[in-house]
Nucleic acid binder design. Structure first.
Length: 627
RNA sequence: CGGGGUGUAGCGCAGCUUGGUAGCGCGUUUGACUGGGGGUCAAAAGGUCGUGGGUUCAAAUCCCGCCACCCCGACCA
């Protein structure tokens, strides 16, 4: 099949900087017809040795991506077509939700970050370049600063709000450890949107746009054909007050999410609340004499437990945090959880803020040296230390605020104690609500009581984060001086939201979720082509002609077609067909052709294909696209 | 950033211990046979052995520095 077989002229122009924008000069509703021989699909039998995750292996083997450096990948023609499809779906849903597309620079002068201090918050994660004059610029990881700067200079009145602006472009993050191919890259494609409001509630408020974005994201991932879960999330270092993550469900996912099967509540580990765990029994009687045990050179709670013959769920884990109040004053807080549980820093922060009444208090894991100097035997701390280090707050997780046998640190190096008793060891301060609080201080786990349905238990699942929406509040507008006059001529800081979708990650996540032993299985909506026509004898005129005729009909019907016109053995073509994963394969061979038919095979259906008359193939293919 | 590991042909690997003409499989090219699930035979092209230095008559191999990449952990809008 020669290249003049392409009857459709395709003019895809990459506009803008690293943007994905493109225009298609093809007839509306008509698909394209490309031939394998005239594009670049370098499939391989073996994957590069550094590829481990399914998406990395399959996208590499199937000729979609190629690694150029650590966390940097070429997008070959098939990948680019899929990325364009995902982008187009994103674009349509964003536009439908009232957002406007623009394109901001990737190269951002570091001075932009001066007000928000995010260069420090981001730290080494921010890619930096130095120009010939020695000026430093960041390669944009997200665009809160430049978009705020833009809006600040162009919007002055509440009448111009709300507005929601988005872009689709290449982003940069200097990841400490890029991994899993496209799932964690240093250079990746992302859609980021930012909305601006004068109010939280009501028409035109942030909440309204946030809900629209939630709906738009749901549409995007549903249209992409992905099985996903929207979970409640912590907003992280980006700041803000509320957020949801959209997770593609896949067992190979890096993130753990928790779901309540009864109420539908879903959240990530950092955020997930835990239901009622019953009354605490801090005043229970001792189980025995306090006994000190010498426990040298035991690095973790598991090792200590083994050595003392105590199970982790009977040990108290005490973690020291440094607290800085809004007025700059500093003190300590310790969080106590059961040995088999993990402390949740976000929950500790919430508890500290409640106890101090300081909504701006910051809480971070204590610096070891400073904590030791203050009197904490790091690694061997017990709750009773609050009596010796004055002013220390004590947050006890519900599951640790119980009577019975406990082992704990002994507040001196290399020693633990058995028969720790809350009332006896900590004393009267336990009842002082200014210093002691019993609450939720740990990560949720499978089997924990649901916070939304009595009697229901949380379940865990793995996911890949592909979308994240935040309520930012006024963090950036205040830091950068973005305000507008309201109807009463009062200057008001603008309230912001931001909304991201990892476009290249979505492609990889789809492969993680949709593949089998033979290769990729694309959802039709984001497959690079809809139909692969495998021509068994490309030299035979009648085979070529049949392929051409069917391809034309499919294209007229709006489907994109790839014709495998290579002079390869059938086995090679079938293997490659499975590998690249197009939803439908039509095989042109002698047997079927003699009956005026072709062989139809849906990629997702195992087994042999079926013989379909030429006249029915278009309808058959169309049906497969919606399945 | 801590720990471990790897750099030899487009891809996957051997050779290094014990220094002496750089090899294998896949892929690629040519020809013949073949033709419905990665074919057979024959011939061929393709590598400054990551890089800089050192030891040596001689270094892919031994020594030192550097760089790149991977894995585990820390970290992760």
């Amino acid at each position: 099949m020669s290249s003049d077989a392409d009857t459709t002229i395709q003019s895809d122009t990459q506009l803008g900087r690293c943007g994905l924008d493109h225009t298609r000069a093809e007839r509306p509703g008509r698909g394209v017809i490309h031939t394998w021989g005239s594009t670049l699909i370098p499939t391989t039998r073996e994957a590069p040795s550094d590829a481990e995750s399914p998406s990395h292996i399959l996208l590499s083997r199937a000729g979609y991506i190629r690694k150029l450096g650590s966390g940097i990948y070429d997008y070959l023609p098939l990948a680019w077509r899929t990325l364009r499809r995902i982008s187009q779906i994103v674009r349509e849903e964003m536009d439908a939700a009232g957002a406007s597309e623009l394109n901001l620079p990737v190269l951002l002068p570091i001075e932009l970050y001066a007000g928000t201090r995010r260069d420090a918050d981001y730290g080494d994660l921010l890619f930096k370049v130095t120009d010939r004059k020695g000026a430093v610029a960041a390669l944009g990881p997200t665009h809160e600063e430049p978009i705020t700067e833009l809006v600040k200079g162009s919007i002055n009145s509440y009448k111009q709000l709300p507005i929601n602006l988005y872009q689709i472009q290449t982003k940069f993050r200097d990841e400490a450890r890029p991994r899993s191919g496209l799932l964690r890259c240093r250079e990746f494609i992302m859609k980021d949107a930012y909305s601006f409001h004068t109010a939280l509630e009501g028409a035109g408020g942030l909440n309204e746009t946030y809900d629209k974005m939630y709906a738009a994201y749901t549409n995007v991932f549903r249209r992409c054909g992905l099985d996903f879960t929207a979970v409640e999330a912590e907003s992280g270092p980006i700041g803000g007050s509320a957020s949801h993550e959209f997770m593609v469900n896949a067992p190979s996912g890096e993130d753990t999410i928790l779901k309540c099967p009864v109420s539908g509540y879903a959240a990530n580990v950092e955020k997930c609340e835990i239901g009622d765990r019953g009354l605490h029994t801090l005043d229970a009687e001792p189980t025995g004499e306090l006994a000190e045990v010498h426990t040298p050179n035991l690095p973790g709670i598991d090792e200590v437990g083994k050595f003392m013959k105590v199970k982790p769920d009977r040990m108290l884990k005490t973690i020291v945090f440094a607290v800085t109040r809004h007025d700059g004053s500093r003190h300590w807080a310790i969080a106590v959880v059961r040995g088999d549980h993990d402390v949740n820093e976000g929950k500790v922060k919430i508890a500290v803020r409640e106890m101090t009444g300081d909504a701006n208090a910051t809480v971070s894991l204590a610096d070891e040296k400073a904590a030791r100097a203050a009197g904490f035997a790091i690694g061997y701390v017990s709750p009773k230390v609050i009596n010796s280090v004055k002013g220390t707050l004590l947050i006890i997780d519900h599951d640790a605020a119980q009577g019975g046998f406990w082992a704990s640190g002994a507040d001196k190096p290399d020693h633990h104690v058995k028969h720790f008793n809350w009332k006896r060891e900590v004393g009267p301060i336990l009842a002082d609500l200014r210093y002691v609080k019993v609450g939720d201080a740990r990560n949720a786990m499978a089997g924990d009581p649901s916070p939304r349905a009595t009697g229901s238990r949380l379940e865990t699942a793995r996911g890949i984060e592909v979308g994240h929406i935040f309520k930012l509040g006024t963090k950036y507008s205040q830091a950068m001086g973005l305000s507008v006059l309201d109807a009463h001529q009062q200057s008001r800081p603008v309230i912001m939201g931001c909304y991201g979708i990892g476009v290249s990650r979505t492609m990889a996540a789809s492969v993680e979720q949709n593949h089998d032993a033979d290769g990729i299985v694309w959802p039709p909506a984001i497959a690079p082509y809809h139909v692969l026509i495998t021509v068994l004898k490309p030299d035979a005129p009648e085979h070529r002609e049949a392929a051409r005729t069917i391809a034309d009909r499919l294209a007229s019907s709006g489907m994109d077609v790839l014709i495998d016109d290579r002079d390869e053995r059938p086995g090679v073509k079938f293997k490659d067909a499975d590998l690249i994963g197009l939803p439908v394969r039509l095989t042109i061979g002698d047997k079927a052709l003699a009956e005026g038919a072709v062989e139809f095979k849906a990629r997702r259906v195992p087994g042999k294909g079926e013989i379909v008359p030429l006249s029915d193939t278009v309808a058959k293919c169309r049906a497969a696209m919606s399945g």
